[in-house]
């Protein structure tokens, strides 16, 4: 068998499939550096940051939440990126993301009465890093 046969097969099949179909992937992460970056975070009724690590299961971290946003946008065919999402899509995505965050969590032990999910939009303007926070969805827990 050629020294390169499996490599060629894996590369060709991944390219032919052209999308994520485990175990095949085109490994598109960071294949471009667009002028935007999103981070998602929570605030309570007092406007304080509710950290993921101290309040939710280990898997529900900021990275996970960001992954779900992109999967969700792909799933619903939302036009996303560069802060261009319309408020309706952002609200729908926020509602589902908050549902995922709260799924199987013991809400009794929460020391806050409501949660608001925000999206931080980082971008460069005149070679300076700037950001804008947008409210996606808010929900009362009590």
């Amino acid at each position: 068998m050629s020294k390169y046969l499996l490599l060629i097969f894996y590369v060709l099949i991944s390219i032919l499939i052209g999308k994520e179909f485990h175990p095949f992937s085109t490994f598109p992460m960071y294949n471009s550096f667009p002028n935007y970056g999103y981070v998602f975070f929570l605030k309570n009724e007092k406007g304080e940051i509710v950290t993921f690590g101290r309040n939710f299961s280990k898997s529900k971290n900021a990275g996970y939440i960001a992954h779900t946003f992109y999967s969700l946008c792909e799933h619903y065919g939302f036009n996303y990126g560069f802060g261009k999402e319309n408020s309706e899509d952002l609200k729908k995505a926020g509602k589902e993301m908050l549902e995922m965050i709260l799924y199987n969590e013991d809400e009794e032990r929460f020391n806050f009465d409501s949660l608001k999910l925000y999206r931080r939009f980082y971008f460069l303007e005149n070679k300076k890093l700037k950001y804008r926070d947008d409210l996606m969805y808010g929900q009362s827990l009590k």
Partner: peptide
């Protein structure tokens, strides 16, 4: 640079 600050922001919003 945006991706860099994004990566560290994840840690901030996880840990405070």
């Amino acid at each position: 640079a945006i991706q860099m600050v994004k990566g560290f922001s994840y840690t901030y919003f996880d840990s405070g």
